Amino acid sequence: MPKRIKSRKSKIGVAPGSLIHVGEHVNDDVKIQLISYNEDIFNKASYENIEKCLSACNNDAINWINVDGLHEVEVISSAGKRFNIHPLILEDILNTTQRPKIDIDNNYIFIVIKMLYYNKDIKEIESEQVSIIILKNYILSFQEFQGDIFDDLRRRLEYNKSNIRSKGTDYLAYSLIDTIVDSYFDIIENIGDSIDEIEDILMSNPSNEILNDIYKFKRELIFLRNSVWPLREVLGKLVKSEYELIDDKTVMYLRDVYDHTIQVVDIIETYRDILSGMLDTYLSSISNKTNEVMKILTIFSTIFIPLSFLTGIYGMNFDYIPELKFKYGYLVFWIITIFCILVMLNYFRRKKWL
């Protein structure tokens, strides 16, 4: 299981707004990509230096600056100084333990969202924090690692007849959020398939491995819910409030993402209920198996009670026990024994205990 609660010891006692990276440290270099576009132009380039990237921005176009890697604090600091971003916002970007949230400023909107992946090999959800800053002609996005789910979006931007090329930064931010939310459905579909497999095995052969899988997916769904539920609040603020950076036409699209988020949460709750029911089914199956074993043992014990009584009586060492010298005593004993067994088995069958 990946470690999802990251240590924040480095943040203890430091001043607010201190730029300290909290999260997984990687050895890869920070990758900076700039996409500048409008209806007529499209330029895409990668940079190793944030200053070169900022100087290459086109003020007459929409500029999407994407930073992969948060371990080089100077990159975040330089971008913050260039766009006059509050130090507390920069601190939140570097602190990858944030829940989805939104902060509104007069000049920008800051959004934190969780980008999730489903690892089919270990059947676990892996998480990455994405921070988005919406400005007048700029979108800044900060990711923990290289590689994301935005390749289709980049291809849409490159296609000169795409509707997104005529929109502003608010529509690009919507597209980023929409892509992430759509990926949640793929995760839910994979989890749903695994739950169906567990349910089939549970009905045929419940085992300790199945119990472990049930608890594992309950934990995964809790983690998924904690990543998605706060996003409703973020989108709710964008939809219900009026901001200069959010066009009225984009609000309709944001409402659609909000509805998708609610749908994801509803499916998560449904799967949690299903897993809880499966856990009850597992416990009932184990209890039924135990009861079946106890029933068989009880029946055999009951059958041997009269036999033990007979053998106990004729096993006593008294001189004048009846039938002690009887020639066919042993044969009669077995006849009586078998008769008692047959009578009791027939009685158990009539009572449907067997």
Rank of each mutant, 00 (worst) to 15 (best):
K352D: 10
T281P: 00
E126V: 15
I262C: 10
Y330R: 10
N119F: 04
I133D: 06
P230E: 04
F217E: 01
G236A: 00
F185N: 02
D193H: 14
N63K: 00
T281M: 15
D266Q: 08
G312F: 00
S301K: 03
N291Q: 09
F185C: 04
V251S: 05
V73Q: 00
G17W: 03
N163D: 12
I65Q: 04
N288E: 08
N58T: 02
V257S: 14
I313D: 02
P322M: 03
K114W: 06
F150I: 06
S36V: 06
K11A: 00
R219S: 14
Y320K: 07
R82M: 09
I188W: 02
I89Y: 01
G277V: 08
L283Q: 13
F223I: 13
I50R: 00
R349T: 05
S36D: 05
Y184D: 08
I195E: 03
L279W: 08
L54C: 12
E233N: 13
C53A: 14
N317V: 00
V130M: 11
E242W: 01
I321T: 11
L238I: 15
M316D: 00
I104V: 15
L342S: 05
I41D: 12
Q143Y: 03
N160C: 07
T179K: 08
D319S: 14
N119M: 07
I134Y: 07
Q98P: 07
V67N: 02
I149Q: 09
A56K: 10
G277S: 15
I305E: 00
S285K: 09
A15S: 13
D28Q: 12
I201V: 13
